[in-house]
Design a protein around this nucleic acid. Structure first.
Lengths: 186, 186, 186, 186
DNA sequence: ATTTAAACGAGACGGTACGTCACGTCTTAGT
DNA sequence: ACTAAGACGTGACGTACCGTCTCGTTTAAAT
């Protein structure tokens, strides 16, 4: 959490930006979307509300900025087999979601997207981008691209379904899903 | 929309209950969760706020009551084959969600469930109940119950994923998903 | 406080009337006008709200009924001298107001009279009636009636002023007031 | 009545404060305490409720603020004689109360003081302050201070008694009261 | 002896106001 | 020019009480 910061003159203060994004992310991680208000972020970041509104036009855009900040961390290793990659992809999603603020943040973005068209568009765009990467990876093992896209979509949808209902599959469930998907397109 | 209703004595007035639930459902259908406030429901239903709070302790519980009111309509025909039942189940979900207030209502419930533990529990319970029915139906065609449960879960998750991102699959996509699922457990 | 009472047929139940008036008086005595709501009276008297509204058309009229019930107790002895009667009258007012629910009730009636024309009229009428009695008593000692009325009015106004500001004069102050009044009209 | 006002920065907007106090005072003058609600004041002043609650913690404190705003106007001329000053003081009270919002405001404060300890304390404090001034003035004509205080208290109590019961004395009645008081302490 | 009619406790009804919270906008004073 | 601070109007939150209404029960009075 940030200490009191003075202005650094007629230029954007990167410390403020970071303090705001950190506060927003931490609030989402700790209290979910319910605790995520501009006022709470400003209090926690020791920032003025207009400073937040200057850079992010509303609550939704700040949420999306936090969400965008997660992307860099979303990498997972290749295994060499299709089965290993699919299983690893799914398993990694849940690890990522539970070990970082990512889970609450994504839940919040999805919730926000049900109310806010901009959040919806941003989330869908990001999903498509990610799915292109994922299916490209799956296709490296000789799978047709359309089938790779299909199982990537199904896998991610399944993972969302678990996340949104507060569940997390065990290894056996992940293995079964993987098997169904690979046999299904085999 | 309801006219002003008097009390009918020391008992719940079904006309008021209906007017409130109708108003709530219509607001969700027209404006989504953002337009769904107790004040707005009271105005539209020509009801007093305390009348709403008397029967539904908060916004979430009223939302869940609207959601529960959808159950009866959620039926779809049997086709005689596993492939037909799976495909029909998925197709029916999207028809149901787009032709009735059900789509916006379910989107709202899922969004609410990300914030509210009660909504989360209610949604998960309802989902499990529905999935038991669905997988039982799939199992009538000779499929093992655990496999039937798995593909029911996957199918519903896929449908939610489409709904929550504002998409709707065409018949070919539904057919492909159906094929993957059935071959996957075959 | 009353037990649950049944109807005694097509006639007013005196037990209910008493229970309601007692509850109203006690609430005024204990919590003042702030705690005096029809709902609170009904709860305390174990009466239905319509039973109250059947006999007293609104909150003000029930307050006035409690006030009217005080009249009988408002008697004080004659002393044989003008000075004794004036002093005794004033002293008696404060004893009456502090030893019974009368103080809070009269404070409440005066407060209510600032908002409600009916309460104002009722209070003024009662005041005039009382003042006629008081000044008649003072006049028995040879004082002209108009002078007796004047000092009765002044004495009561002074007493109200003390009551409404939460004060109570000691004996010396009462004696001084008495002296001023009697010498003033002497 | 005020137009919509913007914030003028991180400081109190005097225009809003004035609009709110004016609206409160006018509501009291026109409708008395019954019409005096925070919601009504906010509507009339075109102010937000939180703006009112930011500066005055509740209805009572806003009422007392209106009451305090009357002080400056409560001045009356000296006449050179005790009789003239006493009579002028009493007469002035009624002129002040009938020609300005002061009458309804004071009636409201007294009513509120019967319910609210804070209002009671504030009213009593203001009364004592005023009475010190008044009795000091009376004492300039050679009257002992304790006697001056006594007749000031009696005079004000009499005036309150008239105000609270919706009466107003004519000149002869004021003259008679003055005579009684002066002869009483003579 | 039976029926009628009104009073009873209970509590739901549509409203209004309460006092609180967060929204997104605006201006100040300082760096 | 950018900062922290915080006031502004708006509007929803959940609660209390208003005065009205109907329910089903009870019982005295009228048949």
């Amino acid at each position: 959490m940030a200490q009191a910061r003075k202005s650094i003159g007629a230029q954007r203060n990167p410390a403020s930006e970071k303090a705001i994004l950190d506060a927003a992310r931490d609030l989402l991680a700790e209290q979910g979307l319910a605790g995520f208000s501009i006022e709470a972020v400003a209090r926690r970041a020791r920032a003025g509300k207009p400073t937040i509104y200057r850079w992010w036009p509303d609550r939704t855009r700040l949420l999306l900025a936090v969400y965008a900040g997660l992307k860099d961390e979303m990498v997972h290793p290749e295994t060499g087999t299709l089965e290993g990659d699919v299983r690893g992809f799914i398993a990694h999603l849940f690890e990522f979601w539970s070990g970082t603020p990512a889970g609450p943040v994504i839940r919040s973005v999805i919730a926000e997207a049900q109310t806010n068209a901009e959040a919806s568009a941003a989330f869908l765009a990001f999903h498509r981008e990610r799915n292109a990467e994922t299916s490209a990876r799956f296709a490296r093992h000789g799978l047709a691209l359309d089938k790779a896209q299909a199982i990537a979509e199904i896998a991610v949808s399944y993972a969302w379904g678990q996340l949104l209902t507060g569940r997390r599959p065990n290894d056996a469930q992940i293995a079964r899903l993987t098997e169904i998907l690979i046999r299904g397109v085999g």
